[in-house]
Design a protein around this nucleic acid. Structure first.
Lengths: 124, 124
DNA sequence: TCGTGGTTACAAAAAGGTGCGTAATTTACA
DNA sequence: TGTAAATTACGCACCTTTTTGTAACCACGA
């Protein structure tokens, strides 16, 4: 699933953050340490399997730390690493950008139609 | 496209930026106006289908503007909207965060509050 | 038996690739 | 003079690949 042989750091981050779950999980984890079952409650639509996969991915990326405590039943806690915490404001900024964009976008400059804007092509 | 009924702006942005192409296309488009065929040359591994789909998505999101010039053969140019330009530094910040993280991540740290509890690593 | 965190096998769904068709004009060529 | 080919930016149908969901199973002790 990962070669991560990309020369571009942006490609690499997006490989990690892409999809519905990563940013959502980070969102919940920034509230503090969470157990596996907490995260499932926070986000009831994620499947058991996806949650483990996504957490593993975030762990591998150094965003989340997994702590396993022996005991019965088994207890595992997840929390953001310091890198994970530094990521949070960047993600938030994207959300804010989107909100701002959505507002301005209400007066849709996308005056679509069959005939597009009359732009004249230069002779070439 | 999708319902986009998400209450969370972050979920919405990620829906747009997720995947290999959106940030890559934005990257090339920040260099200036590009034609469809330019973008294919910039990124030879994207299929024409994907390119149209992704461009349409970015257009719908208000990130890219599509300009169609009549003439034969048809000519279409794409460029970032002002919102698109404002997005660029946010994406760049993610890339920088990743680079910084990758460096420090070589010694996978735990700069968080240390619980004295034993931490057990997963078998694998 | 239940509950925790996790794995695996199989099935369904989504994403993506390939290749053909199309428009309106110009050029290529017999 | 007739016509076939090429051009650009796609849409569409079909098929493969990847991702995700479902469900069953595991360990352990209360």
């Amino acid at each position: 699933m990962k070669s991560l042989v990309s020369r571009c750091p942006i490609e690499e981050v997006m490989q990690i953050l892409s999809g519905r779950w990563p940013t959502l999980l980070i969102y919940y984890l920034k509230q503090g340490t969470k157990r596996f079952s907490d995260l499932r409650r926070d986000n009831p639509t994620i499947s058991h399997k996806m949650l483990t996969l996504e957490l593993r991915k975030l762990e591998d990326a150094g965003i989340v730390e997994r702590m396993e405590f022996q005991g019965y039943p088994l207890r595992v806690e997840y929390e953001l690493t310091s890198a994970g915490h530094r990521l949070v404001p960047l993600i938030d900024a994207l959300g804010e950008w989107w909100e701002a964009t959505a507002e301005e976008g209400l007066q849709a400059d996308t005056a679509n139609g069959e005939s597009a804007v009359a732009k004249v092509s230069r002779p070439d």
